[in-house]
Structure formats: C-alpha cells, structure tokens
Simulated scan of single mutants.
Amino acid sequence: MADRTTDRLLHALKAAGPQTAGTLAGRLGVTAVAVRQHLDGLAAHGLVAHEDRREGVGRPRRYWGLTAAGHARFPDNHAGLTVELLEAISGVFGAGGLERLIAHREAATLAGYRRRLAAATTLAGKVRMLARLRTEEGYMAEWRRDADGSFMLIENHCPICAAARACQGLCRSELGIFAAVLGAAASVTRVEHVLAGARRCAYRIEPVATGIDRSRRGRKLRGPARASRSMPAMPRLR
C-alpha cells in the first residue's frame, strides 16, 4: 500500500469522520475498488473499522472510521511526557501552582493570537484566521458561516488530548482564549467536546450587538428624532 494514499485516506477519515468507500473514492479521486483494497489493508493493521448502517430501504451501507490506533497516528504533542509534567507540577506545587501555569499559558497564547488577528477587521475574518492558527498548531481546524449569521469553528483533531484529560483546566482555558480574542462582539459556546465523547471539538460563534448597534437599531424602529416646535402665538383680535 502506498504511504501517500494511506496518509490521504487516514486524513480524510480524521477530518470528516466515518464515510463509505464511495464517498472516500470521490474525495481522493480514485476508484471505490481501490479504496476498499486500502481500507482492508488498514483494517488488517487495526487502524480502521467498519459499521453497517441501514438507511431506508435496501441493503445497509458500510461506513469506515478510525480506531483508537488510527487516531493515534496523528501528532499528540508528546502526550506521555506532557501528562507526567502536569502530574509533577501538581504534586510539587499543588493545585494552585497548576492553575498559575495554565493562566501563564493562556496569557501567552492570547497575546500571540491577538497579534495574528490584529489585521482582521470583521468577525468572519477573525474566525477564518483563528481556524488557520489552530490548524498550524495541529488541530485540523475548519470554519463555516451558517445561514443564521453565526459561525462554526470545528477542530477535527486534538493534539493535546492526553494532557487535557489529565488537566481539564486546559480545555476551560482554550474556551476563554477564544472568547477573549474574538472580543465582546461575539459569544462563544462549545457544542461538541472530545472529552465528553464526541469525535471532535466544535464551537458556535454568534455575533453580539454592541451598545452602539442596539442604539442605532432602536432609532430605526422609532424613526428619526424630531425637534419639537412651539406653536406661534395667535394674533390678538382688536
């Protein structure tokens, strides 16, 4: 099996979740027969597994997805060493010391993000740049704008997953970083979470009207303000 094809196949399953051989063939630009051969090879190595799903009338469709070993093929930022260091810090300096470490990392990360997002003048531009930064850090991030005007930031891989399981303050910190870097004009909510059993982390980002925006909208609803005029005095009849 060609290494490049294997990597592309694993990447497609990581980025989009379980898929049929036909869907994967369309993504990779190869035949479904070739994809099935590669999937069989990956399954033999324990990297993928399949699940048959019944969708309406007819035969079930076979979906292929990554196993735990398949997910482990992606970078994990030296997970074992990171977990050991976190445990050592907590053991030596206590919970307070670990919280100070998280706060220091949060401040440094936020400062770096703010420098990179400084040129973005719209919320869409900020979300786009944030997704790019997270991808550079190994999160395989993507973003989209939904019909209601909100945005989704989706992270298909968590390179700090082992550390986050050992210290969930890291996840809390990341949510705070997103909210801070996007500013008061956005509300950020985590809607999918790897640590809660989801296959990825996803965040809904909703625009928030500022005080100025609300004031302008209120004036539009009420109509333009008009200065009151006093009625001229009626001439006295003689």
Rank of each mutant, 00 (worst) to 15 (best):
A95K: 10
I89P: 02
R226Q: 12
A179G: 07
P60R: 05
A162C: 12
A49Y: 11
D7S: 14
H38E: 11
T135P: 00
G183N: 00
Y203Q: 07
R128V: 07
G91D: 06
S228I: 14
F74D: 04
I212H: 14
R27C: 02
L170N: 05
A209S: 06
A107C: 07
R73S: 02
A147I: 11
F74L: 03
R172M: 10
G176P: 08
V92N: 00
A107I: 06
G96D: 11
T121E: 10
D40I: 11
G70T: 00
L182T: 07
Q37D: 13
G58W: 03
G41H: 14
Y139M: 00
D3C: 09
A227K: 15
V33P: 08
A118G: 07
G26C: 03
A119W: 15
E55G: 03
R144T: 10
R200N: 00
G138P: 05
E106A: 13
E192R: 15
A131S: 13
A162M: 15
G96R: 12
R114M: 07
H71E: 01
Y139K: 05
E174N: 06
E51R: 05
L66Q: 01
C171M: 11
E55R: 14
I212L: 14
D52P: 14
L101C: 04
G58I: 10
A120N: 01
A119H: 14
R134G: 01
G97Q: 03
A16D: 14
A163P: 11
G138M: 00
L13P: 06
K220C: 08
E174I: 12
A34R: 15
L221C: 04
L123H: 04
V191D: 01
E137K: 08
M234A: 12
I154H: 03
Q168D: 11
V30A: 02
A108Q: 12
A166H: 07
A111G: 07
S90D: 11
R190G: 05
H38P: 02
R115C: 07
R217S: 02
T210K: 05
T67E: 04
V181L: 02
M234K: 13
H11L: 13
L39C: 04
L153A: 01
R144M: 11
L237E: 08
L81Y: 15
V83H: 03
D7N: 10
C161S: 15
A162R: 15
L85D: 02
A72G: 07
L98D: 05
P18H: 03
V191Q: 05
E106H: 08
T20K: 06
A119D: 09
R54H: 05
L101W: 00
R145A: 07
R238S: 13
R132Q: 09
E99G: 07
E136G: 13
G70C: 04
R222L: 15
Y203L: 08
R145T: 11
G138R: 04
A2N: 14
A69C: 08
P159Y: 03
I89A: 01
R214H: 12
A166V: 11
T6Y: 02
P75V: 10
I102L: 10
G125S: 06
H104S: 12
A43V: 05
R214V: 12
P60S: 03
R145Y: 06
